[in-house]
Every structure is written in structure tokens, then in C-alpha cells.
């Protein structure tokens, strides 16, 4: 009899329902060690016994890839800092072109420290090598300038300042460099639309960005610099007696010497056109931007203070730039092109 009850109990045990508790298990303490498993030996996945550090070029490449691809902003920033020191010490195994291609998108990086570090890096790059990539650089700068965030557009302006320092002529004469950048400025300053009367919910001045005076001053200053670069008469090149023969027999020393012919690209419109000499730039400016700019400047001058002062500086540079310009009565080739 005793054995039968025991058996019964044993059997019954199999059919007992376990009682589950509601909710989470109690949290483990922070110093908890999982001892539920035992192992006789520990196997490492990979082991490297060499004591030498990787060589510098590999390191450079690694930090370059980190800077352009890493998701963590801290890592990006540190990689950029590393690159900066390397470049400053004259060590650049990949070349300026590759470096620029990888790093230019960082101009609109959402993280502020990364952008400042990027500018530091750009300042270290050799100017004459940057000059050849002006078109690509100004493209990314424009994208940064019109960015929704004020900080990014300010930093993009700093990048533009750097470009103006190192490659003044190339910036204003590359395809799209003049007209497109100017219209970006228009959009940035909020000058592109004539102010309309009537009630509106939009903040006065038309922009949703915070209009702190400092960044306004900065924008105006850089615009003035850009205009000066574009409109001032170039220094007359010293006459080269061999120029004729060089043109005939020597291989040109600049990249894309015939870019203005646009032999292989798509057809350019007025905005994307190259404006090589300051006269053509003046013409375009006079036709499309002069009215907008002078109205904007007038408006800004009335604000007074630092902003007003820099506005008058801008007005001055406008006046200087357009001094020698007289609108020609001759038929503009662009109009003909438009007709066609």
C-alpha cells in the first residue's frame, strides 16, 4: 500500500502545473557572476602575438575610414584629430584628392566638434592641391550653407572662408561656383523673395533660423569677401613672351585646361555656367542679383549695430566691385541661348 501511494504521488508530480509568477525576475546585482556553466579551458577567438604597431599609412587609412564612416561622433572627431596631426606633419599617404573626396560630406555633419575639427584639418591641407578640386569643394559647401541648422551653415561659411583663402580664383570661376553660390547666399540671408505686405505667421525677416546678430555679421562679412573675390579686377598677368608657342607645343599644366568648352559634360544652364573673367561675373551679377542684394543690404543697414556696420562694409565692396561695370547694350549670348 505504501508503495502504491508513493507511486501515485510520483505520477501526480508529472501532471502538476508549475505556477508562474507575473512580472520580471529580480534584477541581478551589478557584481553578479554567472556561475551556471563550467569550462575546463577558455578559447580565444583571435590572438595576435606581434608587438609592433601597424605602420603609419595603415593607421592613416584606418582613421580616414573611421572619420568618414563611423557612427559614433566621438570616434569621428578623434579620427579627424589624428588625421590632422598626421597631415600637419606632412604625412599623407592617400593624397589630397582622396582625402577631400572622403571628408567633404562631413561639412554637413550633425555634430559640432566634428565640424570644427574638420576645418582644422582642411586648414592643414596644401592650398595648391585643393585648388584643383575647387568645384567639388564648393558644391559641398553650398549644401552645408543652405542647411536647416544654423550651426552647420555657419561652419560651412567657415569652410567657404578657408576656400576663399586658398583658392580664390578657382572658387568663383569654376562651373556653378559663382551664380549658384550667390543664390545660396540669397536663400541664406532671406533676400530671395521680395517682402510682401500683410499679416503672416512667419517671423519677420522670413527665416525660421534664429537670427542672432553674430552669425548675421559673419554671413555678411563672408559674403563681402566672396563678392570682392569675384568682382574685383584680377591682377593683370605678367606678359609671357612664350605664351603663343607654349599654347601650341606644350602640354598644359593645369587639370582640365579646356573645361570652359564643356566638351563632355551635360549642357549647363545659366546657373551652372563657368564665369571665367570678372566681367562676365559682373554681368551675371548685375542682371540677376544686384537688385536683390542692394535691397537686402538697405534693409540690413537699417537694423544698425554690428549688423548694420558689416552691411555697410558689404555695400562698400559691392560698390567697388561693380565700379567698372557698365551694362552693355549688346545682345547677351545667354539670351540667345535661352531663346534656343
Amino acid at each position: 500500500m505504501g508503495s502504491s501511494t508513493k507511486k501515485k504521488k510520483e505520477k501526480a508530480k508529472d501532471f502538476q502545473k508549475p505556477k508562474f509568477k507575473v512580472g520580471k525576475a529580480k534584477a541581478k546585482p551589478s557584481n553578479f557572476t554567472d556561475t551556471s556553466f563550467k569550462a575546463k579551458s577558455i578559447v580565444m577567438g583571435q590572438q595576435n602575438l606581434s608587438t609592433e604597431a601597424p605602420e603609419t599609412s595603415a593607421q592613416f587609412r584606418h582613421s580616414l575610414s573611421l572619420a568618414s564612416n563611423s557612427r559614433s561622433e566621438k570616434q569621428r572627431k578623434e579620427a579627424l584629430a589624428n588625421l590632422t596631426t598626421q597631415v600637419a606633419s606632412g604625412n599623407n599617404p592617400v593624397g589630397t584628392a582622396t582625402l577631400l573626396a572622403r571628408l567633404l560630406p562631413l561639412i554637413s555633419d550633425p555634430c559640432g566638434p566634428v565640424r570644427t575639427q574638420l576645418l582644422k584639418l582642411f586648414r592643414q591641407l596644401p592650398g595648391d592641391e585643393v585648388r584643383n578640386h575647387a568645384e567639388r569643394c564648393i558644391m559641398y559647401v553650398r549644401a552645408g550653407m543652405t542647411h536647416l541648422s544654423v550651426d552647420i551653415s555657419n561652419d560651412a561659411l567657415s569652410a567657404l572662408e578657408w576656400l576663399l583663402d586658398v583658392a580664390e580664383d578657382e572658387i568663383v570661376s569654376c562651373p556653378g561656383g559663382w551664380a549658384k553660390t550667390l543664390s545660396s547666399f540669397c536663400a541664406l540671408m532671406g533676400w530671395s523673395v521680395s517682402a510682401t505686405g500683410g499679416w503672416s505667421a512667419a517671423p519677420k525677416g522670413g527665416s525660421l533660423k534664429t537670427k542672432d546678430a553674430q552669425s548675421r555679421v559673419r554671413q555678411l562679412a563672408i559674403l563681402a569677401k566672396f563678392l570682392t573675390a569675384g568682382l574685383e579686377a584680377e591682377a593683370v598677368a605678367t606678359r609671357n613672351p612664350n605664351a603663343h608657342w607654349d599654347g601650341m607645343y606644350r602640354v598644359p599644366r593645369v587639370p582640365q585646361p579646356f573645361a570652359y568648352l564643356n566638351l563632355f559634360g551635360s549642357r549647363r544652364d545659366e546657373e551652372a555656367e563657368m564665369y571665367i573673367d570678372n566681367e562676365s561675373r559682373q554681368r551675371v551679377f548685375g542682371r540677376r542679383f544686384l537688385i536683390l542684394f542692394s535691397r537686402g543690404v538697405e534693409h540690413t543697414k537699417k537694423e544698425g549695430g554690428a549688423v548694420g556696420r558689416s552691411a555697410s562694409a558689404l555695400e562698400q565692396s559691392l560698390k567697388d566691385g561693380m565700379a567698372g561695370f557698365e551694362p552693355s547694350s549688346a545682345v547677351d549670348p545667354q539670351d540667345l541661348l535661352d531663346l534656343w
Binding site: R142, M145, T146, S184, A187, G190, A201, A202, G206, L208
Partner: peptide
């Protein structure tokens, strides 16, 4: 809600779009 007042902002975004498209 108010397209007329925000025309400027739109133009800014349009500029952004243009430059990004280019890139």
C-alpha cells in the same frame, strides 16, 4: 498652413535640395 509667409523658407530648402541633388 501658410504657404505665402514661408516662401522664403521653402526657397532655402529648395536651394538645399538643389545643392544636395548636385552632390
Amino acid at each position: 498652413r501658410d504657404p505665402k509667409s514661408y516662401e522664403d523658407n521653402f526657397l532655402q530648402q529648395w536651394g538645399q535640395y538643389e545643392s544636395q541633388r548636385e552632390v
